[in-house]
Design a protein around this nucleic acid. Sequence first.
DNA 1: AATTCACGGATTGTATACAAAAATGTCGAC
DNA 2: GTCGACATTTTTGTATACAATCCGTGAATT
Lengths: 218, 218
Amino acid sequence: MKGRRADDIADQLEALILDGTFAEGAHLDEVQLAARFEVSRTPVREALQRLAQSGLVEQLPRRGAFVRQPGPVELIEMFEAMAELEAVCARLAATRISDAALADLHDANARCRTAMETGDTDRYYRENERFHAIIYRQAGNGWLQQECQRLHRRLQPFRRMQLRLRGRLRQSMAEHEAVVAALDAGDGAAAADALRAHVAVQGEKFHRLIASLKSAAE
Amino acid sequence: MKGRRADDIADQLEALILDGTFAEGAHLDEVQLAARFEVSRTPVREALQRLAQSGLVEQLPRRGAFVRQPGPVELIEMFEAMAELEAVCARLAATRISDAALADLHDANARCRTAMETGDTDRYYRENERFHAIIYRQAGNGWLQQECQRLHRRLQPFRRMQLRLRGRLRQSMAEHEAVVAALDAGDGAAAADALRAHVAVQGEKFHRLIASLKSAAE
DNA sequence: AATTCACGGATTGTATACAAAAATGTCGAC
DNA sequence: GTCGACATTTTTGTATACAATCCGTGAATT
C-alpha cells in the first residue's frame, strides 16, 4: 500500500470522465465509486473534491457530485483565454528565451514537420505539446507556466478532436513557423500575434465542428 | 448544525494564515486544528486540501500540511502575471464593454478620487477593487474573469501593504484615468498598456518594499 | 566518537459507524 | 386523476476507530 490512494482515484476518475464512461450530468455516487475502486468512501470523497476544484465535476452541497463538461460557450471562452495566455507567453519569451531553448523549439518544429509529412497525427500531437510547453517555460514566469499547462491540459480532448480535420496539420505547421520566426527575431509583438492566431483558429475550428455536429443532428 | 463545516473552516484557516497566526512554514496539525474548531479531523482535512489547491498550504504525503507563503520570486511572478492578465482584460473590454459598465467605471473612479482626496486608504482600496472587478467582467470571458479574481484575491494582502506608501494613491489615480480614457476611446492597445503598467508598478513598489525591509533587517 | 539499526511515539491515510438532510414513494384528500 | 403531506429510504456530511508510515531517540557496533 502506498501513501495516497485518493490521488490515483482522482486520476482514474478523470480518465473515466474524459473517456465518456461517465456522461455529462451523471451523478457520481460515492458508495458506487468506492465499490468500483475497492476502497472506502473517504478517498473517493477527496478525489471528488479535487476534481471539483479542477472543474470536471460540480459539487452541490448535500446533493453530491455531478459530471460537468464545459458547454460550447464555456469552451469558446477557454479557447480564447488560452490564446491570450499563450500570446502573453510568446511576448515574454521573445526577450527571455535561451539559445538552447530556441534550438529545442526548432527541433520540436522539425519533428512536427516530419510527423505532418507522414500524416502521423498522434506524433504531431505529441511534438506539438512539446512545442507549446517550451514556450510556456521560456516565458520565465512559473505562475504563468503553471496556469498555461493547466488550461492546456483541460482543453486537451477538444484540441485533439479537431487536429484530424482536413488540412489542419499543414496549416498548424505554417503557424508554428511564424511563431518561431518571430521568436528568432526577438519580436515580442509579432510572436504574440502569431501564437494568439494559432490558438484562436483552433477555437474557431472547434466552434464550426460543434455547429456542424449540431446541424447534422437536426 | 449546517451542511458544510469544511468550507467555513477553510475560510477561517485562510484568515488565520493571512492574519499571521500561523507563520510561514508552520506545521498545521490536524488534531490541533480539529480541537481548535471543535470538529473532527475529517472536515479539517477537507479544508486543508482546499487550501493546498489554492496554494496557501503545501501538503507533503505522509508528512502533513505546512503554511506556504509565496517567496519574493514567486510574488514578483504573480504580480507580473496579474499585470498581463489585466492587460488582456482591458484589451478585450475595450471593444466589448457596455455603456452602462463604462458609466459604472467612471463612477468607481470618481469614488476613488474622493477617497484619495480625503486620504481614506481603506475606502480607496474598496473602490479600487470595484474598478478592477468591472474590467474583469467586461472582458466578456467568464473563465478569464474567474482567474483574474482568483489571482487578485491571492495578491490582496501584498497589494494592500503598498497602498500606504507616500504618493501612491495619487499616482494610482492617474493611472486609473489613463485606463478609463483608453476604454472611452475604445483603444484596446492603449487600455492594455495602461492597465499593465498600473499593475506592474504595484509589483515594482512591492519589490522595493521587500528590498528595503531586507536591508533594514541587516 | 561516529554510524547504523531498531523501536516507540506521533501523525497521516483509510475504513467504518453514526447523524442529518434530501430524494422518493405512499397514502389520502379534493 | 392530481396535488400535497407524511413516512421511508437513500445519500451526503461528520465522528471515531484502525492501520501504516515517518521521525527521533538511543543503544549497540565498528
